[in-house]
Design a binder for these strands. Structure first.
Lengths: 344, 344
DNA sequence: CTGAAAGCGCTTACAG
DNA sequence: CTGAAAGCGCTTACAG
């Protein structure tokens, strides 16, 4: 339907000024005499006028719109991140155009084309896999973009992630300090840098302390797979005495399998440690020891970086890592000498 | 930054045609000779051209963008709904502009002003409270909008909700059939029609069967309040033998309080029934009996309604109610003669 | 400070 | 089918 919205020309007529003057009143930084200012505002109020942002964007070449591409919201970490990203951008006068794309590369590429046609000023790719062609296309196009929670080896691509390697190392360190000897890793998606780094950090610490991992399996951030692997792990002989799970979302499934299906006591029989510290991790039902990946701090850093790239295209891209803090709760048998998570 | 995007004029030049011809090639329904069609597409491909949707929207008066205002995503029901709404709209060639607004009326009103300035073709208000002034302003403006999961008494406002009254009645009916006599209701927000109707349906059935509700309290869809009220309920003397909780999100908190803090057995000591059937309700940890409020069917209906309103402004607004189906799991002591939820 | 003019990148009658 | 022209609703040099 075509709603007839009132235009600057109509306001100008009613206020007895020229149309550009109306425009200036609504354009921050323009100078208009107090008298006309008042008359225009009055007329605008009376007619319910608001500048058409489409027309404005067409002129200024800036849409003040940011495209956010998300892989999926099943994992509450992304919900938290989306809310935070959204709030931050709105605070800076930007609007958000959201797209949900599965990790199928084709889909992501198509979505990005779409975003470009919409003249977004910048793009956030949250946890989606980006093909090299797409990356190249975005760079050629000159549009600022940053990867959220999904880094790439290529340092010319801006990204914000947790310090995943360090987090994985911390998990191993904590479990080893707790006296665990048979530590399994239900890993995050190994096709994502996130998943690989968490695992690499975990392995690095194990090796450093001369330990062998008990078992490692890629569960691709899937609850279903994590559940199945947990059962398999224990049903095929003796199980591990600790499990480092690639993220909280899977860890909840692991806990269920352990407690409700295998009848094990956590942490007496097995310790479990997750990654993310989503809100649910603090629920009494789970009370999960985990590595905090602070969605809000990551979102802040992401917004800040993208905005500075938009403002200043010459800026060098950066890869920011946000430290992951260990949050100790009750799913782990904790080291005797343990006091302050800060020591880890 | 200003990225120089290639324009239709540049493509026209390269293809040796006029600019309007380029435009026509990308405008479905326009006729262009096969030869020029091909030359234009080739040139466009070479230059990486895509029509600027801002300019297009300015001409056509349709932005093919929908604004979605959400109250919050803490409750996973809204995440599911958002994903589904988004997918449906994309399928119809629309884009989504998301806004998160708390239920503060001022905030919602401001957000809607913003949406109007952005020339959205329609608006979905998901579970936010809408002031009467705002409603009036939207109607005066002539922009189509539908309330998702938050009906209003006023039938001139389009909305899609679950059949909440019927759902509440069903909950009572099922619990009564299970032999419960002391049924409490931890109610959803009584300032929302949703919450009121669920309660009203519950009460209607109780009265019909000559029963008194054991206790009713408004917990405003808050986990914290639901948790506290549950503890209070049992610590202040004898507790109820069943609780109908206003939504799943609160029901999880109720279950935690019951099992982990009060040491009660569900359903032996108390039955619990929720509302929504979010994905988590099916997790083994909770395995919650609940009323299914099908996010996807509701989203479908919402999108369909909004699109038809956009297409045909003369259409009469409707209030659609989607039936809530009882999903029986293990948190309820079930009626002996119970077989098929369909009977309820 | 302010208005007339040009232009942002398209679409769409209007002739032909 | 196709091009020249007008126009969508603004912003922004350009004079004054």
């Amino acid at each position: 339907m075509r709603v007839s919205r009132t235009t600057a020309a109509e306001v100008a007529k009613l206020a007895g000024v020229s149309q550009p003057t109306v425009s200036r009143v609504f354009m921050p930084g323009s100078k208009v005499s107090a008298d006309k200012q008042r008359r225009v505002r009055e007329a605008a109020m009376k007619l319910g006028y608001r500048p058409n942002t489409l027309a404005r964007s067409l002129n200024t070449g800036r849409s003040r719109t940011i495209g956010i591409v998300l892989a999926y919201l099943k994992n509450p970490f992304y919900t938290e991140a989306l809310e935070k990203l959204s709030a931050e951008f709105h605070e800076h006068g930007y609007h958000i155009m959201t797209f949900f794309a599965s990790n199928l590369t084709d889909e992501v590429d198509g979505v990005v084309e779409d975003l470009l046609a919409h003249q977004v000023d910048g793009i956030i790719l949250a946890s989606v896999s980006v093909s090299n062609e797409l990356t190249k296309r975005l760079q050629d196009h000159g549009i600022p973009f940053v990867l959220f929670n999904r880094g790439q080896e290529d340092p010319s691509i801006a990204s914000v992630t947790a310090a995943n390697f360090e987090g994985g190392r911390l998990a191993a360190k904590f479990l080893l300090a707790g006296g665990h000897a048979k530590i399994a890793h239900i890993a995050g998606w190994q096709k994502s840098l996130n998943g690989r780094e968490r695992k690499a950090g975990f392995l690095a610490e194990m090796v450093k302390q001369g330990m062998e991992p008990f078992h490692i399996v890629d569960c691709e951030y899937s609850r279903v797979k994590a559940h199945k692997e947990t059962l398999d792990l224990f049903r095929s002989g003796k199980g591990p005495d600790a499990i480092f799970v690639g993220n909280d979302h899977m860890a909840f499934a692991v806990l269920e399998a352990l407690r409700l299906e295998l009848g094990l006591n956590v942490p007496r029989d097995v310790s479990v440690i997750g990654y993310d510290d989503v809100a649910m991790a603090a629920w009494k039902t789970f009370d999960l020891t985990t590595l905090r990946q602070p969605a809000n701090r990551m979102a802040e850093a992401t917004v800040k970086m993208l905005l500075s790239m938009i403002e200043n295209p010459e800026i060098a891209t950066k890869c920011i890592e946000i430290e992951s803090q260990l949050v100790v709760r009750s799913t782990t048998r904790n080291p005797h000498n343990w006091r302050d998570p800060g020591v880890f």
